[in-house]
Write a protein that binds this DNA or RNA. Structure first.
Length: 892
RNA sequence: GGGCGCUUAGCUCAGCUGGUCAGAGCAGCUGCCUUACAAGCAGCAGGUCGUCGGUUCGAGUCCGGCAGCGCCCACCA
């Protein structure tokens, strides 16, 4: 695939600018097909990031070739980081993993589609904007085109219109995104910045709304007024995927319900006595002998005198509490199940602000045997938070003698919105849902089809899908998000007709129903009887993020591009968002395309702080990457990151970064040495390699190439790095030492077929291959060293393969010459160290006793060994048993 | 309650389909200005591979029980 450099003469002793394709380096078996060799006097790490990242940008080194067919494309569904402040070291960790694979695939000849997205849509941004500018969104206010936020955040927060609020969100995230990009460029991510997107930008809004409108047409989304998980602080619905259990103290309160119509009294236990006014039934297990006689009977609630039935349901647990539960609308999700399955009435007391609402006792739905008493008791609760109401009602119950014994403190799991601070309530509201329950079997199959790295992560997806209990609620009562692209007709009486939503034509997208007008209506008909009203809600942030492959691939906007990249090759992501991002992306691709969104998913672990604790803002142990990059350099930080295997949590380890730095410096120095031997003489071809030591070294390298390639294909970047690195140190410590003298050469250094030329050719081939092997991990130093003697970027060079190391046929000793010679050299070093002598000390006599095969190998490297060890007399003695090396140092 | 992962030298971790597998790096210690590298180089020392049992001629390596740590899922009154 690579034409020989035009200036190259047959023996390779050439210098001349090659005419290779721009950005494309050498081909196999052609280690130096570029240009002259020029090595700096004192190579160093400083400044490499600035120098090369600018160069890569200028040269378009990582630009996606959109002419490539799908089979030649490697497409990455890059996670869009949340733009709500600063990146932490965990981002650097996982994005480096992806980058190593991206670089590998690029060098293998793939057109790599590697976009970057910014997740600026959603609650984290709203929150940051509120704090940063001291504002709050009031959707009832009109847009103020000239609005500028105060210089300092005012208290209380300034109310602004929704469009003004969104503008502030956009302004702040733009600044954040710039800072993020700078960091990514410093780290050396090989992203094509021309493909950047944001989850709130026009393309993302278009894709989200298009997907919604189409799903609506296919019946895959529906609206429903139903009990909904509700965060009272954020005043929005949340989905099952955003739930999190937290252990909280609580107490069992034992309440006595008097029998109604002559039945016996019943005692129940509840952790939420404040919901007593919302009680609609008692429930026990059908097989529970204690309560079976009561099924069908009724009891009276204490304080409120509501008559409620005693019913049977298998989900009641006889072991729990008194074995019979109070069903309220709604205390928890079990209440919802009972309410639905037993067809119970609704009596809501907790409002959307988390406070108890007024109730008309005695009116329909609120029947009671004692309206005045109920109202009197309830008056003490209205307007209070659930917490305050609980304290109040417990006092009332106690006074009424309905509380049996003192409350029994317990610790129990309570459901929270993952970003929330107070327990979730369940309120009835109108929301849009995506049908996921119907799709469960299909989604499980897709999970099996997907290739997981590491494989055991598939279990997490499986558990989640199997445990789905509700469809996906995608509407949020928030502001900075993609609007639900619908309007509703208003009846002549002004009532909203939710049953006939007005959906925009696809070519109108994206729309904002709060400013745009549905087809067939005029602007002045907004909110007027007989007119229309816009849906006030936005979509869940995951409803947009679940479309990242479609957004990045410009689905619906550039179908040619989309066809070349979708379904994508890999989704890299962390394990904590399998149930959200991964799951919802699979749902969307299944519904829209009937396929997986990607063939592989690479799950990265988390970064733990140096004490192996999970990093979190509240603990204050979050490590920011910039100081680390400045202190150690990008390659060093990348080296540390690449040492974390897929799926494995890894601690921040500056020691490991120092090791990386050492490796990076070593790459420069070893390159300097090897290329120093080529200066003036040019790069000899591989065919000049004749010495057995050189041949064995290259053979071993060929094995390393094979292993590293296989590992990277399987996303095992850590293994690839480890193999390349281990070989590289042997290459430096043993091979270079052994071959050094010969490589410098004597009078006949340039003789074709001679040992010096063999060494130089082997050095060139080995260096060329190793720089390419290490390029995905250490992009800066490898590029720097590559630039000393090669044309084009190492990152566009061809990934090394067998052709790079194909040796002419020849008879070599059976034993690995490098191994045996290095072992003997080691013994010599040991002797010198033990005698506290310099490595330069001469060896008067070296006797090696060993099997004949190993001695044969040694003979093949005899001159190298003698030079490297400073050996005056070398005696090789054949023995039957184990080998031995005797070293007699010369006297100074 | 169900499930997953981890448990190998002081630290961080490799050890694939069972038989040079008891390893690497860091830290520690001892030395060395060696013409690629003193932000280097050479070398030394360090572990009954969590625990109990099983399979096998042979087990960090396979199977089962247990323990500790971390995590996922769960209808948690």
């Amino acid at each position: 695939m690579t034409a020989p450099a035009p200036g190259a003469s047959p023996d390779g002793a050439t210098i001349g600018r090659s005419a290779t394709v721009p950005g494309r380096g050498t081909g196999p078996g052609d280690p130096g097909a570029g240009r002259g060799v020029g090595v700096p006097e004192r190579p160093g790490l400083e400044g490499l990031e600035a120098k090369w990242s600018a160069r890569w940008e200028a040269d378009g080194t990582y630009r996606f070739d959109r002419r490539a067919e799908r089979a030649d494309v490697f497409s990455i569904d890059t996670p869009p980081p949340t733009v709500s402040g600063t990146l932490h070291i965990g981002h650097v960790f996982s994005y480096t993993h992806t980058d190593t694979v991206a670089r590998f695939q690029r060098m293998r000849g793939k057109a790599v589609f590697y976009p970057m997205g910014w997740d600026d849509n959603g609650l984290p941004t709203e929150r940051r904007v509120q704090n940063f500018y001291g504002v709050r969104c009031d959707p009832s206010l009109p847009f103020d085109p000239g609005f500028e936020p105060p210089a300092r955040p005012p208290t209380p927060a300034l109310a602004v219109s929704r469009p003004n609020f969104v503008q502030l969100c956009e302004r702040l995230t733009a600044a954040d995104e710039q800072a993020f990009e700078t960091l990514w460029r410093t780290l050396g991510l090989s992203v094509d910045w021309g493909l950047a997107y944001a989850t709130i930008d026009e393309g993302a809004r278009r894709a989200s709304q298009r997907s919604f409108v189409r799903a609506l047409a296919r019946g895959e989304v529906y609206q429903q007024t139903a009990p909904t998980l509700w965060d009272v602080d954020f005043a929005t619905a949340v989905s099952q995927a955003e739930l999190e259990d937290r252990e909280r103290p609580g107490a069992y309160h034992r309440l006595r319900f008097e029998g109604h119509g002559g039945g016996p009294a019943v005692e129940i236990e509840t952790t939420r006595p404040e919901l007593l006014p919302a009680c609609v039934a008692l429930v026990a297990h059908p097989d529970d002998g204690r309560y079976a006689p009561l099924f069908g009977a009724s009891v009276r609630t204490p304080l409120f005198g509501t008559v409620v039935p005693v019913l049977a349901h298998p989900q009641a647990d006889p072991e729990k509490g008194s074995g019979i539960a109070m069903v309220c609308t709604f205390g928890d999700t079990t209440d919802v199940v009972w309410w639905r399955e037993l067809g119970l009435p609704t009596r809501t007391v907790v409002g959307r602000d988390g406070r108890l609402e007024p109730v008309a006792w005695g009116s329909p739905g609120w029947e009671t045997e004692d309206p005045a008493g109920a109202a009197a008791h309830y008056a003490g609760l209205v307007g209070r938070t659930v917490r305050q109401a609980q304290a109040a009602i417990v006092e009332q119950l106690e006074a009424a003698g309905a509380l049996v014994g003192p409350p029994r403190p317990i610790t129990h799991p309570v459901k929270f919105y993952e970003r929330g601070e107070r327990p979730l309530e369940i309120v009835s509201s109108r929301q849009w849902f995506v049908r996921t329950l119907d799709l469960r079997e299909r989604l499980l199959e897709r999970g099996e089809e997907l290739r997981w790295h590491p494989p055991y992560m598939a279990q997490r997806y499986r558990s989640w899908v199997e445990g789905l209990s509700a469809d996906w609620n995608i509407s949020r009562q928030r502001f900075f998000g993609v609007p639900i692209p619908l309007w509703y007709p208003l009846g002549t009486d002004g009532a909203i007709d939710f049953g006939h939503p007005l959906s925009p034509a696809e070519d109108r997208l994206p729309v904002d129903p709060s400013t745009d007008v549905p087809d067939g209506y005029r602007p002045e008909q907004r909110n007027e009887p007989g007119g229309f009203v816009g849906d006030p809600d936005v979509m869940d942030t995951w409803a947009t993020s679940s479309l990242t492959p479609q957004i990045a691939g410009r689905w619906g906007h550039d179908e040619d591009l989309f066809a070349r990249v979708f379904p994508m090759d890999v989704r890299p992501q962390a394990h904590d968002i399998i149930r959200t991002w991964l799951f919802t992306t699979v749902v969307r691709a299944e519904q829209e395309a009937g396929s997986l969104p990607w063939s592989d998913v690479a799950i990265s672990g988390w970064v733990l702080d140096p004490d192996r604790k999970k990093m979190s803002k509240s603990k204050g142990n979050v490590v920011t990457p910039l100081p680390l990059l400045e202190r150690h350099g990008a390659d060093s930080v990348r080296y540390w990151a690449a040492s974390g295997r897929p799926g494995t949590d890894t601690a921040v380890d500056e020691g490991q970064m120092k090791v990386g730095r050492r490796l990076a410096i070593k790459v420069l120095n070893a390159s300097k040495f090897a290329l120093g031997r080529l200066e003036g003489g040019g790069v000899p071809p591989l065919s000049a390699v004749s010495e057995p030591l050189d041949r064995h070294m290259l053979r071993r390298l060929a094995t390393v190439v094979e292993e590293a390639t296989g590992a990277l294909e399987a996303y095992e970047y850590t293994t690839a790095l480890e193999r390349a690195e281990t070989f590289f140190w042997v290459f430096c410590d043993d091979y270079l030492e052994l071959v050094k003298s010969r490589a410098y050469g004597g009078p006949d250094a340039g003789r074709p077929g001679g040992p010096t030329l063999s060494a130089r050719a082997a050095l060139a081939a080995a260096l060329s291959v190793q720089l390419r092997l290490l390029a995905p991990f250490l992009p800066y130093v490898t590029e720097e060293a590559w630039s000393w003697w090669q044309e084009g970027s190492v990152h566009r060079a061809t990934w090394p393969g067998p052709a790079d190391l194909a040796l002419a046929p020849g008879a070599d000793p059976a034993e690995d010459v490098l191994d045996v010679a290095a072992e003997v050299l080691g013994a010599v070093r040991r002797a010198k160290t033990a005698a506290k002598r310099s490595m330069r000390a001469r060896v008067a006599r070296l006797e090696v006793l060993d099997r004949s095969g190993r001695l044969d190998a040694l003979r093949a490297a005899r001159a190298d060994l003698v030079d490297a060890g400073g050996i005056q007399e070398l005696v090789l003695t054949e023995t039957e048993g184990g080998g031995d090396v005797q070293v007699v140092l010369a006297v100074d």
